[in-house]
């Protein structure tokens, strides 16, 4: 790590803390702010933010690893979240998941080599009436069949 990086991280940590607050009860919003900026929690930023708010790094990691929202690796250009709620499960979420997984050659939590897609699953998106459902970035796609899913993926790959 060069010194320029140190100072960049320290500067950003100060920005994050200024935007959110420095009280211990702000740990979750602080982590959310970091993830909002970068798509994941970098070790460097967790450490500098911890220093900034005078809490042990372990406290931030303890919280970050407890909640499923937080990830520790960068994500691809598009984030795919396959809903695995009950309604989606009985409507064939597993089939939709398999198609994506096979098509992209990644399993849950992984990013494709070209950096285009990251595959995740979520417990429920609350759109049970449209099961099975997949969310790509901010868009929700419902009533999916394996064929429809393949088509949507292709659209994104072609640069939608």
């Amino acid at each position: 790590m060069s010194c320029a990086d140190c100072s960049n991280a320290a500067k950003e940590a100060r920005e994050v803390v200024a935007a959110v607050g420095s009280e211990p009860e702000k740990v979750i919003p602080l982590l959310q702010e970091i993830q909002k900026r970068h798509g994941y929690l970098s070790q460097e930023l967790i450490e500098t933010v911890a220093e900034e708010i005078n809490l042990p790094v372990s406290r931030l990691y303890g919280v970050a690893t407890f909640y499923s929202q937080f990830r520790f690796h960068p994500i691809g250009k598009h984030l795919i979240k396959v809903c695995k709620g009950t309604a989606c499960h009985v409507a064939g979420a597993e089939k939709v998941y398999s198609i994506i997984s096979e098509d992209l050659g990644v399993v849950e939590g992984e990013t494709t080599e070209d950096g285009l897609f990251t595959l995740e699953s979520v417990a429920c998106l609350g759109c049970c009436s449209l099961a099975p459902v997949v969310m790509i970035d901010d868009n929700i796609y419902g009533k999916l069949s394996p064929a429809k899913m393949g088509k949507i993926l292709k659209e994104y790959a072609d640069g939608k």
Partner: peptide, 11 residues
């Protein structure tokens, strides 16, 4: 914190 998969009343 409506966490039950299959429930969306609170939302």
């Amino acid at each position: 914190d409506e966490g039950d998969p299959g429930a969306f009343m609170d939302r």
